[in-house]
Simulated assay, not measured.
Amino acid sequence: MFFLILLIGIFIHPQKVIFEANIEGKVIDENNMPVFNATVYRIEKEYFINEKIGSNESRDLRTESVKTDKNGNFKFYEKSRIDWFHTPLDLPIGYCYAEFEIEKSGHEFYKTKFGKFEQYRIENCYACEKVLFKPIITLKSQNITENRIKK
């Protein structure tokens, strides 16, 4: 029994795992001008069990927010969590992605489409550690959209 506990202790242990990448983005308008003071939200998945039907489900959560600066820039820093069942037998593969939403009065709401910002693990990193996404997002003015609809 002692040997079994020792063996489990060697292979199953808490280890810090990076799971949300860095995002350094820029928000511009249709004229390539920076959008100041837009709110950018990091979107993460929350996994839960639907007790009514007994299935595993997920939903999007806004977990962090930042404002764009006068140059339209924003940044989310790498986030990590503790994975209590990490083992050395896990594959050294990390699938990294970035999901976010942007809101600014007078502009259309922006949400990333699934798979728009993604990459696999890079050399010499664990999971999504050191992964950086640098999106440039163009927010459309609501006035331009409303004019197109009227035509």
Results as ranks from 00 to 15, higher is better:
residue 132 L to T: 08
residue 127 A to K: 11
residue 61 L to E: 06
residue 33 M to W: 04
residue 150 K to L: 14
residue 49 I to F: 07
residue 94 G to S: 10
residue 113 K to V: 12
residue 15 Q to N: 10
residue 94 G to I: 09
residue 105 S to I: 08
residue 49 I to T: 14
residue 6 L to E: 05
residue 102 I to Q: 03
residue 96 C to D: 05
residue 55 S to G: 02
residue 13 H to Y: 15
residue 20 E to D: 13
residue 35 V to L: 09
residue 73 N to V: 03
residue 122 I to N: 07
residue 143 N to I: 14
residue 36 F to R: 04
residue 52 K to Q: 08
residue 117 F to Y: 15
residue 88 P to V: 02
residue 107 H to R: 14
residue 89 L to F: 15
residue 4 L to T: 06
residue 55 S to P: 00
residue 12 I to G: 14
residue 83 D to W: 14
residue 68 T to I: 07
residue 94 G to L: 10
residue 123 E to N: 15
residue 5 I to S: 02
residue 122 I to C: 04
residue 146 E to Q: 15
residue 131 V to D: 00
residue 75 K to F: 04
residue 67 K to N: 13
residue 151 K to F: 14
residue 120 Y to I: 03
residue 121 R to P: 01
residue 57 E to S: 07
residue 118 E to K: 08
residue 145 T to E: 14
residue 116 K to Y: 10
residue 56 N to V: 04
residue 50 N to F: 05
residue 44 E to M: 05
residue 108 E to W: 10
residue 31 N to R: 05
residue 119 Q to Y: 14
residue 120 Y to R: 08
residue 69 D to P: 03
residue 43 I to G: 01
residue 30 E to C: 05
residue 77 Y to W: 09
residue 2 F to Q: 05
residue 22 N to P: 06
residue 146 E to N: 15
residue 132 L to S: 01
residue 107 H to P: 02
residue 105 S to K: 15
residue 36 F to K: 10
residue 97 Y to V: 01
residue 140 K to F: 04
residue 114 F to T: 11
residue 42 R to F: 09
residue 54 G to I: 00
residue 97 Y to E: 13
residue 45 K to Y: 14
residue 55 S to Y: 01
residue 31 N to E: 06
residue 39 T to I: 02
residue 84 W to E: 14
residue 70 K to Y: 10
residue 125 C to L: 05
residue 23 I to N: 04
residue 78 E to A: 01
residue 66 V to D: 07
residue 91 L to N: 11
residue 107 H to T: 04
residue 80 S to L: 00
residue 138 T to R: 11
residue 94 G to E: 12
residue 94 G to A: 13
residue 56 N to M: 06
residue 111 K to F: 09
residue 142 Q to K: 15
residue 94 G to K: 11
residue 85 F to W: 05
residue 147 N to Y: 12
residue 145 T to M: 13
residue 80 S to Q: 10
residue 141 S to C: 02
residue 132 L to G: 01
residue 83 D to S: 13
residue 83 D to N: 12
residue 71 N to A: 07
residue 26 K to W: 03
